[in-house]
Design a protein around this nucleic acid. Structure first.
Ligand code: MN
Ligand code: MN
Ligand code: MN
Ligand code: MN
Lengths: 220, 220
DNA sequence: TGGAATAATAAGGTCAGCCATAACATTTTG
DNA sequence: CAAAATGTTATGGCTGACCTTATTATTCCA
């Protein structure tokens, strides 16, 4: 089961599928949104990836990875998250920029470089954003958590990971202390999809629901 | 003078110009050969790069870099050679594979990653193939050497650098001990563009002229 | 259950970077 | 100096990955 040579665009579609939930059926709309393309374009691309046997598309239902697609996707995610570790631990790059910078490198990384990098880094299990790194053999244990957006008032939780990708969003969360390892509590949830009011350490923080979706938490 | 966003293909054309001699006028044919495209394609591309002000093309004479092109080109070369150092010194990647592996990474490397990498590596001045690494400020001192193919019989030289790019050629030279730092002597030059016979350490080695072009030497 | 939202499909475009073939121009070399 | 080698230009073609606009199909929800 060696990995094929996939285009950068293909790899990004596959990675998005993992980021939107490895085992989820993902709607074309969500995929399009994440990848910043129109739904029509995502539709075309999904057909192409389907033809390559990387994913299956059930019309009007959504897309899911095939075994082959999942393997390739996990490999991309592995490369990205290993680079995040390197950029953070050894090059001391700003935390909020890690995703975007590693997102370029991931597509330019040959298998032997990936494995040598993993060895150099001492086989890390998590990236600096708190996400697990798929193993070399393709096994991947997603986090046992849920988005902060689904938490209820009064709940106290630990932040496991930040799933955002853009530097501005990551910076925004970082500035408010919302980082892996942090304990937070939901003080209030405004009605009509309004923001959450959180206790983050000693501070109170208001956080919009769509931002809260990026914050993966575990109830303590 | 910040660097523009150039495509991978553009960067490869620029890098080739440096590798074929920073200040040389390079024929379209040589460029095409190095980049593995047809002369017609190289011609089209040279027109595009000319329009962008990266190089100038004198019909029937050849191509040379503009100041802008040279700056961008040196930056690409810097990224590549820094990656070569990292892959070799820290990831322990096979010497012969360095060029090809770093050649992918170079295009995916943001300026802040380049500089952080340089700092991490302690600002190396040479890559493992013996080539100088352009400085962050764009200054670049090419090697003071000449191709082994132009050496005369009896000459004793030190190998400064290997300018080959493909893994197979690099492996071939490595297997014969032709590596930076090695002292070699030309024992014989066969007529009709025939091979050189070299003394490499204790061994005698026959080397074709086109391979000898990749070996940059300095007469002792 | 009907209208709104979402998704699919069709048709036609763009753009970069390649390809081939053929005709023509210039330079090099024997 | 003439022929060979090299370079240029013209045409036309291709692929991947995007786009828009418009029409049609399905699903969701009030
Ligand atoms: Mn990416
Ligand atoms: Mn390259
Ligand atoms: Mn079409
Ligand atoms: Mn055309």
């Amino acid at each position: 089961m060696s990995l094929l040579q996939l285009s950068e665009s293909t790899e990004m579609y596959l990675k998005a599928m993992v980021e939107l939930g490895l085992s989820n059926v993902v709607s074309i709309g969500r995929l399009a949104e994440r990848l910043n393309v129109t739904p029509v374009s995502a539709n075309e691309m999904v057909r192409r990836l389907g033809d390559q046997g990387l994913l299956t598309h059930t019309p009007y239902k959504g897309v899911s990875l095939t075994d082959k697609g999942r393997e390739a996707a996990c490999d991309v995610v592995r490369r990205q998250r290993l680079w995040e570790v390197f950029l953070y631990e050894h090059l001391h790059i700003e935390w909020a920029k890690l995703y975007e910078l590693a997102c370029s490198l991931e597509h330019a990384t040959a298998p032997e470089v990936t494995e040598a990098l993993a060895a150099f880094l001492d086989d890390p299990k998590f990236c600096p954003r708190g996400n697990p790194i798929p193993a070399a053999d393709g096994t991947f244990q997603p986090l046992d958590g849920h988005p902060l957006s689904t938490a209820s008032v009064g709940e106290t939780m630990e932040v496991l990971a930040i799933n955002a990708t853009t530097t501005d969003v990551l910076k925004y969360l970082q500035e408010r202390g919302i980082l892996p390892g942090q304990t937070i509590r939901v003080l209030e949830a405004a009605p009509l999809q309004g923001p959450l009011t959180l206790k983050v350490g000693e501070k109170e923080v208001a956080l919009g629901l769509s931002l809260a979706e990026f914050v993966i938490v575990k109830t303590e």
